[in-house]
């Protein structure tokens, strides 16, 4: 899915921070402070995600997971700290620039466009790629292969879809924006376990096809599909879980409760 512009960015990035390209780290967040209005929420978040990984940002309500995500995708102002994406410092970037460089967030609560059809929702998702209509057509096919149920409902109003279908649509819409890093915020919220399993399966497939995924979750089950688990508590990442730790129930509960 790489284009000429992607390669330019990587070369420039390599020139800027040789270490980053070498270690395969796609996203590096260091010392992030942020919040809403006068209310601070993040007190120095540090995390790193390598290209091709599925990372899960785990934590309870109020831990600052969504705030972190919003900082990464440019919709919330960073007070202090740095966000480096593919070697480029994107701390001060707004959403539009972040989307342009391949950081796409699927927001909490799905937030599909209720008055537009499924097809039109996807069309809007591809807005940043509208100059490359061939790619868009191709991606649309790809996305409908991931989500066959959406293909059936292409002309249906998004507001009339079920919760699970809307979640699928939201992810599909995000994919239409050509993400290198797809951030999925609370995908499993309010969905039946069977649907949640479907969502996680999709995440596996997307990841396998080359998209780095960052999932924001309260649901520990998300660790099943994760390569790295980042546990957040009160505005900081307090624990990083890798490899076997992710499957080890006791390590996980200790990280969350301890």
């Amino acid at each position: 899915m790489r284009t000429a512009s992607d390669e330019d960015t990587t070369e420039l990035a390599a020139a800027r921070t040789p270490g980053a390209a070498a270690s395969g780290s796609l996203l590096q967040v260091s010392g992030l402070h942020s919040g809403y209005g006068n209310l601070p929420v993040l007190h120095g978040v540090d995390l790193a995600i390598a290209t091709g990984q599925t990372a899960v940002l785990l934590g309870l309500n109020g831990a600052g997971k969504t705030t972190t995500a919003q900082n990464i995708c440019g919709s919330l102002k960073t007070w202090a700290g740095h966000i480096v994406f593919d070697g480029q410092d994107i701390t001060r970037w707004n959403t539009k620039r972040c989307v342009g460089t391949g950081i796409v967030m699927v927001p909490e609560g799905r937030r599909v466009f209720p008055g537009l059809s499924v097809g039109r929702n996807l069309q809007v998702g591809a807005w940043s790629q509208r100059r490359d209509q061939d790619w868009v057509d191709q991606q649309l096919e790809q996305v409908l292969t991931y989500f066959p149920r959406l293909r059936e409902r292409l002309n249906q109003l998004a507001g009339t879809l079920s919760g699970g279908e809307q979640q699928m649509l939201a992810i599909a819409r995000g994919l239409m924006a050509r993400p290198r890093l797809l951030i999925i915020d609370e995908a499993s919220m309010g969905l039946a376990p069977v649907i949640v399993k479907d969502v996680f399966d999709i995440v596996r497939r997307i990841n396998a096809d080359g998209v780095t995924v960052l999932m924001i979750e309260q649901n520990v089950g998300a660790l099943e599909v994760a390569d790295v688990g980042l546990v957040m508590e009160r505005g900081r990442v307090v624990r990083t879980l890798v490899g076997d730790e992710l499957r080890d129930r006791s390590a996980v509960s200790e990280a969350l409760m301890g």
Binding site: Y36, G37, Q70, G74, S75, L76, K77, R92, N94, T95, K96, E108
Partner: peptide, 9 residues
Amino acid sequence: SATTVRPSA
């Protein structure tokens, strides 16, 4: 400089 709607503001 952040974009328009901040859901929690």
